[in-house]
Design a binder for these strands. Structure first.
Lengths: 355, 355
DNA sequence: TTCAATTTGTTCGTATGTATC
DNA sequence: GGATACATACGAACAAATTGA
């Protein structure tokens, strides 16, 4: 019964896509070309494309072209996006979510807020509830604990339902192929080490956490900075510790370095907490910071602020913005899941623990 | 936010419908009439109408006209509750929302987060969007609470739809009969003034904001404390200022008091910001705080913390919890709307600006 | 029944703005 | 900067449905 020109074009293109004549994410002919092909006006083509866009067959990119979208089985466009955080009290939380909110609300989305209290159980419970709700996507800060089978199932389920998600702050090691937006720890480690080198230091010790991806990455950056400066890597200057050794081993290691008589004018610490402990320990053995030895932290926490520790800062608002942008890209199909891996440039915050 | 012509028309018509200017199933003006009214082309009007049709606000009848659709009354168990805040960056925001989240999630609710950027427009925009969503209730921090509420219609609409809401932090003066949970400003003003009296001060100046409900209430508490202590109220010691005078008038007034030779050993300030300015001003004329004169703030902001100002604290988490509890009571009917008026007890935070 | 006026639906043409490469 | 392509807007014409005289 309905046989308007644009309906005919809609059906024709739909059939072509379903028949696989156009690959996913390939560009279809421009509006003008299609207009010429079907012998109609550009407006008619536009109307057809608009309809196909709303049905999820295509997505248009301003100034670039119109592309074939991944077909979504079913999705209400609830315009709701879940944001799952560990704690709300976290000092970084407000700024990150502010960035998320800015981008999402500009794009007509609302935020559905959830907290896990940093427990696996909380995270699983959250996600189960979210699966029963109508959401278009999810931004999640993973809970600290390692991933369990139960979890993987929940994420697979979201994949199956075609609900995209983006990890922020961190990412389970087993899921690094999934979309994530986080601080570039390698770059951060390199940046803060380079800062010490630029200050004229040559013998730079490093204290890193061994059972943590971030620890490995920050160490990697530390090594890179030394290499670039032409300083040979000295394993004796690197102290590795595990979560359970925290508060004991780092300072022990540093004392051993001093006892061995190894020269050392600076220490790169895994995070601000360790840096604060190290400074306290150094003071207790009569070393002055930064006159005798420079110490750096990582994370730009309140501790670093109050103790005046030179550290690496998260660009918090930027992180939120990028995560939201990435998620929107995943939803409308303009970003592929495998490309949605964003590492953010860290910022050096210079304070009085280095000179 | 996009500001195309058709979007403007969409919003205008939406607002008119929400305000009840068009009855259900009545015909709206024809496309040509609307085009003339808005001074745009018929195509633009059509685009706007098409959008409204898709959102379910209107339905068009070929050859007959366009009509207002019967707004689908949402069934009320989405288990979603909207939380509308002014800014996310606010230092109090995380703790308040933490309290809200605790209670709501314990009761199986999720939070739908929105921000208004403290603008009336933002608030109206938020609420219009929320009206189209399926929410069970709303907790809202009003924007610029002193000015009278121009979009009462939106709240009436929520009443009509049976969606309960609770104001937090402040409340429009015209809507004080609606449910609200806020700090007891009178009590706070009284408490901090009494603190100065207890310290032995008799001549206590007061600086208050005149165009703000909170300013009036805090002044009221100030007067009560003086009365109870048997100290006569001296109008010469009270300085009123308006938002636009901020940063000039408060200190001017204080200088005038000194020039007049009036005795004054303490100043109650409207908030921490004013207190910080006053302290700075006093120092610049050679007065020491608190040795020569005691100064108090209000709000327990970061400023009060860093400058060591004695102040009145919001019980932030408690505020959030009580608001959530009140809302849940309204939803399940265990609390009546007219009884949902909670004033929270303030807390005195003693620091080094008083003695 | 017929006809004219009104109103929405569809199509074509054109122009300008703006993002991307 | 220029070419390309999408986004928004305006104007015009005609078709199809409805309404009422």
């Amino acid at each position: 019964m309905v046989n308007s020109k644009h309906e005919l074009i809609v059906n024709h293109i739909k059939k072509a896509i379903n028949a696989g004549k156009y690959e996913v994410d390939t560009k279809i002919p421009s509006e003008n070309q299609l207009a010429a092909k079907y012998g109609v006006s550009r407006q008619t083509v536009r109307k057809a494309i608009l309809e196909l866009e709303q049905e999820g067959y295509l997505y248009a990119k301003h100034g670039s072209g119109t592309f074939v979208a991944r077909r979504r089985t079913k999705s209400g466009n609830s315009k709701n996006i879940a944001v799952v955080s560990t704690y709300m009290s976290d000092y970084i939380f407000p700024r990150v979510i502010q960035g998320i909110n800015q981008v999402l609300s500009d794009n007509g989305y609302s935020i559905l807020l959830k907290t896990t209290n940093n427990s696996r159980k909380g995270e699983a419970w959250c996600m189960e509830e979210l699966l029963s709700k109508n959401i278009d996507g999810m931004i999640i800060e993973p809970s600290q604990s390692a991933i369990s089978c139960q979890h993987q199932v929940l994420y697979d389920q979201m994949d199956a339902m075609g609900i995209p998600y983006v990890f922020i702050q961190g990412c389970y090691e087993a899921m690094l192929d999934r979309p994530h937006v986080m601080l570039d720890d390698v770059w951060g480690g390199k940046m803060i080490t380079k800062h010490l080198i630029d200050l004229g230091h040559q013998e730079i010790a490093g204290i890193f956490k061994a059972d943590d991806t971030q620890g490995i990455l920050r160490h990697k950056g530390y090594v890179m900075a030394l290499q670039e400066a032409g300083i040979s890597y000295n394993p004796d200057l690197v102290i590795w510790y595990h979560t359970k050794d925290k508060g004991v081993k780092p300072m022990e290691g540093l004392l051993r370095i001093y006892e061995a008589g190894t020269a050392c004018q600076a220490v790169v610490c895994y995070n601000d907490e360790i840096a604060a402990e190290v400074i306290k320990g150094l003071n207790s053995i009569g070393k002055r910071v930064p006159e005798d030895i420079s110490v750096t932290g990582f994370d730009n926490s309140l501790l670093a602020h109050s103790k005046g520790i030179t550290t690496i800062a998260h660009p918090q608002e930027e992180l939120g913005k990028r995560a939201a942008q990435t998620l929107i890209g995943l939803i409308n199909g303009s970003i592929l899941k495998k490309d949605a891996h964003v590492l953010l440039a860290p910022e050096l915050v210079e304070r009085k623990s280095t000179m």
